[in-house]
Design a protein around this nucleic acid. Sequence first.
DNA 1: CGACTGAATCGTACGGTGTACGAGAACGTG
DNA 2: CACGTTCTCGTACACCGTACGATTCAGTCG
Lengths: 225, 225
Amino acid sequence: MPAKPSGAPPRRSRSTGAATASGGPPLSLERIVAAAVELLDTQGVDGLSMRRLADQLSAGAMSLYWHVGNKEEVFDLALDAVLAYSPPAVEAREWRANVVHMLEDWRAAMLRHPWSAALLPRRALGPSMLGRLELLSQTLSRAGVADADLNVAIWSVWNYVMGATITRGSFDRSADDLAAAQRRLTERAERYPSIDRSRLLLDSDWDGAFRKGLDLLLDGLTPKR
Amino acid sequence: MPAKPSGAPPRRSRSTGAATASGGPPLSLERIVAAAVELLDTQGVDGLSMRRLADQLSAGAMSLYWHVGNKEEVFDLALDAVLAYSPPAVEAREWRANVVHMLEDWRAAMLRHPWSAALLPRRALGPSMLGRLELLSQTLSRAGVADADLNVAIWSVWNYVMGATITRGSFDRSADDLAAAQRRLTERAERYPSIDRSRLLLDSDWDGAFRKGLDLLLDGLTPKR
DNA sequence: CGACTGAATCGTACGGTGTACGAGAACGTG
DNA sequence: CACGTTCTCGTACACCGTACGATTCAGTCG
């Protein structure tokens, strides 16, 4: 009987460079994940089905299950691939620049792949996210945050970025949706006068607000010198 | 031909008190939403299907579609029902108490219904959320935040609460999951030494961290007196 | 060379899903 | 009674994730 690699997939036990009968390159975890990300980017979360994914790879649907345990794992892998982080070659001297760089890179990645923001809350932390957390933890610690305050600091910053990106991502839907939301809002302007007046949903400087709030948090969380 | 109320459902045009043939009470938007919330609470997001929802109401699956356009609308309605907010009868004299009350109520509601935190990022803002935003906007404005800074302030606070609750919600999965995460982490302790040492995933005081970060933001965003 | 083996592919089938369609029941009003 | 409106729901269709087992392929050994 065939043995399925559930816990740790084999990942090309040998470089069997031979093409499959149908002429395409052989299946591999990497190709599957890449195709999944592409499908998610173009079709959204609901657009990813195992059959479509297999089609995109010119493979049978069930072939995927040799490399992957189930669909959830595809999501996990795609999420992790998209959220991978490699710090810049030369680290900045100021700890703050490193933190901000990582957080803005994270935010940018999620905005580049809008499905990721909606998916992240439902999935466990993958290696990419743990790596970012580790970096954040180390940097803040080296910046002088006491151990007792470290967890609070990490989560405060983390939560802020998470919330900012998710909120932001939920607002750059299609222009139609935005226009519809705006129409609904001014229709009920008597019920929501303040947010209608401030054009909260339309004119907000998302990036500026993000930076300002982040600065505020970092100022408050790290020891003053 | 039957006219479907897509935009504005009729909501009991008349109180047709008659019971259906099967003996149960008649269907209504309210009953559907209540049943949906109950199903979501007990079975989770994937546990809600139109057929199951109809079963719970002793109705045929397709009967739901008279009251509701599609399944997404069910999600929207359930979300909005769960996130409704009515401010306390007597408002506090301090603006800050009002803001904190609303935000903590929001957070509590999402933690009471964990599916809501995972759902919110994918759905548009419903009336309940707009109401909360309006309240926040008015209160901050009355607290002295200049119009130019208002949107930044609103979103900063908003994002923070959103992120904190979503993150928190994604971590109170089953004890098994948490233990597994911890095991995976200490297995790779050499790769994540800092977050392993601080027991970041286990010992964090979520509520304390939430309050502290929120205070920091409110301090920074509102004019000092 | 043939026999064997394990890795990898994939066709079929099953139980589930959301919902389009249209037949009918229940009801208020003439 | 008939008629229109409101509401219920059975059937059907396309699609989904995936269990199962047959099949193909690459490589090794005798």
